[in-house]
Simulated scan of single mutants.
Amino acid sequence: MRHGLLTSAILGLTLLAAGSAGAQTFDAAVKRGTLKVCIVETAPYALKTPRGHWIGHEIDVAKRLSSDFNLTPEFVPVTYEDMMSRLAEGDCDLIAASLAIEPDRLRQAWFTRPYGESEVSIVTAGTHKLADLDKAGTIIGAVAGTPAADLAKARLPLATIEIFPDLIAAERALESGAVMGLAYKAPMIVPALSRSASLWVPAVTMLTSLSP
């Protein structure tokens, strides 16, 4: 069963810092003629086609922003775990990703206004109540650097939260039975997991719904 944990805002990350640092970042992009955009390869936001072309919602946002300033977008693949450090190190001018607004991130960078929401849920291969998962010996998977990992730890303090480097590895663990459930953001997880005939993902049961 898919259990909803929380609804959180997602948005595009803009300049590196407030004030002069942000202005310097933009000035450098104008001089280069390119806008370096850090992206996380996650459906349906950013995907690379077999021919090597980037597509997805965040790609469209980055292309439109680049076009508005007569710049050429340059996409830099990163992970949720290292994207803020890559931004700070100057590997990109901005991040376009399904990125939740968090206090630590607000101290490091400017954000745009939120342009969407994502629901953090737990998907299991059978029918379970949320209370069934919060037990010693239960292993729940999550992807490194995602809000889902932190939420799972907070809402399931008795369970073991196993962190995986990416969604593909986490899916495999769920399919093999190595973890009882997988915490991740919907709707991305549903089409990804539906490829496996052995997994049953029924309707969402919301535990909490919060506005950003």
Rank of each mutant, 00 (worst) to 15 (best):
T205Y: 01
R107Q: 15
S8L: 12
A96D: 06
L174N: 00
L13A: 10
T160P: 01
A197N: 09
I168A: 15
D68K: 11
L158P: 00
V61Y: 13
G116N: 07
G181A: 15
S211V: 09
L13T: 12
L199Y: 01
S8T: 09
T42C: 02
T7H: 07
E119F: 03
S20Y: 05
Y184R: 02
A178L: 12
V37Q: 04
W200I: 13
M1C: 02
V40C: 04
T112E: 11
N70E: 13
E74V: 07
G22M: 11
F26M: 13
T79M: 09
D27Y: 07
S118T: 14
G52Y: 05
A142M: 09
V143F: 02
I140N: 06
V204M: 07
S211C: 00
V30A: 08
S20F: 05
P73W: 02
L210D: 10
L6D: 10
V30L: 14
K36Q: 10
A144Y: 05
D68N: 10
E89P: 00
M188S: 15
L47I: 13
G181S: 11
G141H: 06
D68T: 09
S209P: 07
R51Y: 04
L16P: 05
L151Y: 12
G181D: 12
P73G: 04
E41D: 10
L130V: 12
F75P: 02
L193K: 02
E117R: 13
A21M: 08
A170I: 03
G177C: 12
E117S: 14
I139H: 10
G137S: 09
M84Y: 09
S211N: 11
Y80W: 12
I140K: 05
M188Q: 15
K129I: 00
V37T: 07
A170Q: 07
A88Q: 15
L193H: 03
R86C: 04
D91E: 11
S196M: 09
L158V: 00
M83P: 00
K31D: 10
